[in-house]
Structures are given as structure tokens and as C-alpha cells.
Computed example of a mutant assay.
Amino acid sequence: MITFIPLTGFLGAGKTTTMTATALALQEQGRKVAVITNDQGVELVDTKLVRSKLDSVAEVTGGCFCCKFEDLVEAIVALVSSDDVDTVIAEAVGSCTDLQATVVRPLRQYYGQDMVVAPLTTVVDPLRHLAFARAAERGEPESDLSYLFRQQLTEADVIAVNKLDTISAERAEDLLDSLRKAHPNARVVGYSAGTGEHLGSLLQAWRAPATNGDVRLDIDYDRYAAAEAQLAWMNQELDLTAAGDSFDATTWARTLLEDLSAWALRNDAVIGHAKITVELADGDFAKLSLTESGAEPTLDRAAASAPTGGRAVVNARVACEPDALDSAVTQAVAAADRAAGVTSSATTPVSFKPSYPRPVHRLAPAGA
């Protein structure tokens, strides 16, 4: 019997880090674990990093799990058949919701004889949650993005508050308490996927029965689509060539994200996330990420070598128009080229807005 562990949560919450950290922890317990990444586009930065740490990795691209349900099932079957896995962890697109009805229940109904579906887990960034909460406290009308975030919390069996190391212990406890009061049908756990602190509490929550499976999400799909359409999505590849003997891949990527971060702050553009990998000829790579306008990039992996060239992949999800994101990234690439002594050429410039979500299945709770 296969165990399937579904993760959801807003962009930048740390789903990929959570997925990787828990997969490694489960492997230490003797489980054979595979993971599945998911995105509206193709060429995923996260997949490269995950494959550097785990053997069994698959992608579902070009749409969320609900709209690519058959692709999700095919990915699970392929991983189990080829790698003999017993546990699959899958992270949904960060702008996706209504997963109980469109993914969890269909998997249980149509594949329950071969698969145990673990409680649906919503991963939460505490700073993002506090930002949405402060807007509500000020009496501001609920934005479409905040509406989507709230729906992700409402349908969760487990609310997994990640990155607790980024706030004080007192604020962390207050946040956990407020989430428990607001969502009494969910188990609320706090941890840090980056440091591993309290990660065991999340693993334990997955072993408990689902508590919120009968929830019937009263979701306005027009508003859901509007929330996704607020974000411009860019997946871009660039070929990099050093002007001299070599260049620093980390400096190039850091400069690009710093420039994009400053642009977003000036233009009041919410960054869902922005991630970059720079792949080198010898197989080494650097990865950096950004989850907040005006913030400093996070170094997820540094490249050890000094290359003469490489291939960069940029994934950016920003609340702006696609042409504005195209312009901002073009400007940021130019700044990175100057800082690192690089000549770059874009091979696939792509910015877009997601299409209207049309799930393959949408099942009501049993008995409803």
C-alpha cells in the first residue's frame, strides 16, 4: 500500500524545503520516498535542487494537480513502478486551493484500494500570514490573494507553520494559538524545515487520521481565478558566458534577485517567490531564492567551481502584469551581467498569467 502525502500552501511558504526535509527524515526511518513538484509553467528551479538530494523525483508541469489530475496519477504510478517506493510526497502549485475536493477525495475514491492519502497539509510562512492578518486588522477589504490564502487554511487537515526560526518564540506561540482557535478542525504544528527543528511534529501529524475531510469549501471560482491572475509567472532560461576567465555564479544570481527585490518594493508588487539556479558544465549549480519585496535573497546552494559559462533558469511569480515582469527581469539580468562580468542571452523568455482553473474532478464530502 502506497502512502500519498499532499502539500499545499501559498507561494514562498517553503513547501519544497519541507518536502525534501521530511522525505529525508522518512528515509532515515526506513521508508522509500519519492517526491513530485508541480507548477503552472515548465523548467522548475526547485526540481534541480530536490534531485541533488533525493533519488526519486517527478514533475507535473503546465497546470496544478487539480487540472492535471491524470498526470499526477501517472507520475505516482511511474515512481512506484520504477523505484519501488512506498511513500510519495507531492507539493501543489502555491496558488492552488480546493484540493480536498479536486485531489484528495478523487484519489481516495478511485485509488483507495492501492493508496492511503495522508491528511492534507497547508504549509504557512509566518511572516506572510502576519502580513495578511495586519491588513485585515486595519479594516482593509480582503484582497483576492488573501482570499486564496484563507481558503488554503480553511481546507487543511494540518496547518504546518514553517520558518519558526524567523520569528521570536513569543510571536511563534501566539501565532500557533491564534491558528488553533481560528481553525479548530485542523492540527496546527510549528517547525523549521531549514534547521529541522520540531520537524518530527509534522511527521507525527501525518500519521494521525484526517480531521477536515468533510469540509465543503465554499469557494468562488471566479475570485480564485482572479487571485491567480494577479500574478505574472515567468520561467526563463539564459545562457551565460564569462567575459574573462570565469565568473561567480552566486554573485550573478544574487545581484539579479536584489535588483528584482528593489524594483518590486518601489512598485508595491507582491513577490510570491523568485528563484534562480545557475547550472555549470561540470554538473555543479548555485540556487538562490526570494520571497518578499525589499528582502535579501536566500542562498540555498552555492557553486563550488568558477565556470566560464553556464545555464540559468529564473522562476518568478510576482503580482504585476507580465510585460512589467519581463521588463523588470530584463533590467535585473543586465545588472547581474555587469556585476559578475557575464554576457547573457535569453533562450526562452516567457511571462504569462494562469488560465481559469478547471479541475478534472470536484467531489463533495461523503453523504453531502
Rank of each mutant, 00 (worst) to 15 (best):
A334F: 07
V104P: 04
D71C: 08
E28K: 15
P357S: 00
R311K: 11
V278K: 08
S95N: 01
A328R: 07
Y111F: 15
E70R: 14
V313M: 09
L257H: 07
T22V: 14
I89A: 03
H273V: 02
A135Y: 07
S192Q: 09
A336C: 13
C67L: 00
W206R: 09
L265H: 14
T102C: 15
S81C: 04
T291I: 13
N185R: 14
G9D: 02
E173S: 14
A243V: 10
V60S: 05
L265K: 15
D144N: 15
R311L: 12
L130I: 06
T47V: 13
D157L: 00
E43P: 00
R207D: 11
K32G: 04
V333A: 00
G30D: 00
A92M: 09
L54C: 13
A364Q: 14
S81T: 11
T61C: 12
C96F: 03
E140L: 15
S178L: 05
R31Q: 13
A208G: 00
N235Y: 10
Q40L: 12
L49E: 04
E74S: 15
F10M: 11
K53R: 15
S289D: 11
L257M: 07
A335D: 11
T166P: 06
R358Y: 00
R134S: 14
L290M: 12
I76W: 12
W206E: 06
P349W: 12
L240H: 01
D125P: 09
V350Y: 09
S344F: 04
E292W: 07
V158F: 00
K181E: 14
Q100S: 06
V161D: 01
A210S: 15
S261E: 04
C96K: 04
D177Y: 04
V73D: 03
T291D: 10
K353C: 12
G213A: 08
R301D: 03
A312S: 13
F149T: 09
A205E: 03
D326H: 14
A243C: 10
V50R: 07
T20P: 09
T87W: 05
D98M: 03
S52W: 04
E137L: 13
V88P: 09
G367H: 09
V360F: 00
